[in-house]
Simulated assay, not measured.
Amino acid sequence: MNPNQTCRVILAEDHNLLREGLRELLVRMPGVEVVGEAVDGREAMRLASELLPDLVLLDLSMPRTNGLEALKEIKRVNPRIKVLVLTVSKAEDQVYAVLQAGGDGYVLKDTSSADLFAAIRSVLAGERYLSPAVATVVVGLYLNSKDGQAVRPTYDVLSDREREVLKLVAEGHRSKEIAEFLCISPKTVEKHRANLMVKLNVHNISGLTAYAIEKGLVSA
């Protein structure tokens, strides 16, 4: 990070209290300017496209479009923008999916402010940063792979639409509500839900909800 250059940051976090706390931390970091704040993934994508920040600090579990899909779109539109994921989840599926999508860093929310600053500096310097606990997960993925090729976790085989449906189901929305939100038919929602149960090897809504919480898609 160039000490003579201001780093422009967008905060994407749907919990107001946490977002405000992160903002207060960042304004104390020399050379950092918070230029935008998003409360969901769709707004994060819009702001990234309009403001062209140096860095997006991105939560994975957000309404409307989730953080992972926002990450993919931000990188697709402008690969130059660094994206540092900040989440509670260190599940293998999530870590793998973020790295595959081009995430520049993966930091757990229980990290210290000093470690968060270190992560931001590393990412802006062109390095990839992983919280120690996440690095352990990545090593495990590699050791459990064949011929050095990472295994493809279950979450990664879900389609984008299935992930949207999974998150909305876990948030407690009924099929009709999900259909209206996604502009699809209730019958299509039921089909996606059935496919999710097969792919994830769960047998009811409670199982889908538990899986979504485990992967950090929704808060418990």
Rank of each mutant, 00 (worst) to 15 (best):
G216M: 07
V139G: 10
G207A: 03
S49I: 03
L141Y: 09
K82V: 02
S112M: 00
E171R: 13
E69D: 11
I81G: 13
S185E: 06
V151L: 04
D160V: 12
F117D: 08
A101M: 03
G103Y: 07
D14T: 14
T87F: 08
E37L: 03
E180H: 14
L68C: 11
E162M: 00
A118W: 05
E69G: 04
L86R: 04
A220M: 07
V123C: 07
R46N: 06
G148D: 06
R174Q: 14
E177D: 12
R23P: 11
R152Q: 10
N4S: 06
M62G: 13
V9L: 12
V95T: 10
V27W: 02
D110A: 02
V134T: 01
I81K: 09
L116K: 00
E214C: 09
L18W: 08
E171H: 06
S159C: 09
G31C: 00
I74V: 12
L60R: 15
A38Q: 07
A91M: 15
I205G: 01
E37D: 13
R28H: 00
S113T: 03
P79S: 08
R76S: 13
A101I: 01
V34M: 03
E43K: 09
A12D: 14
P3S: 02
K109A: 01
V85H: 08
P79E: 04
L84D: 15
V139S: 15
D54M: 01
V139T: 11
I178W: 01
D14M: 13
V27I: 11
N4T: 08
A220G: 12
M29S: 05
S89N: 11
A210Y: 08
S131N: 07
V198W: 02
L22F: 11
M1R: 14
L22K: 06
A179I: 02
A170Q: 11
K82R: 14
Y96H: 14
S131A: 14
E73F: 04
K82S: 13
R161Q: 10
A118I: 00
G41Q: 05
K215R: 15
V56I: 08
E177V: 10
N204M: 02
R28F: 01
E24Q: 12
G31Q: 00
Y96A: 06
T154A: 04
R46Q: 07
T136D: 15
V9W: 10
V137E: 06
Y211S: 08
L11M: 13
L166E: 06
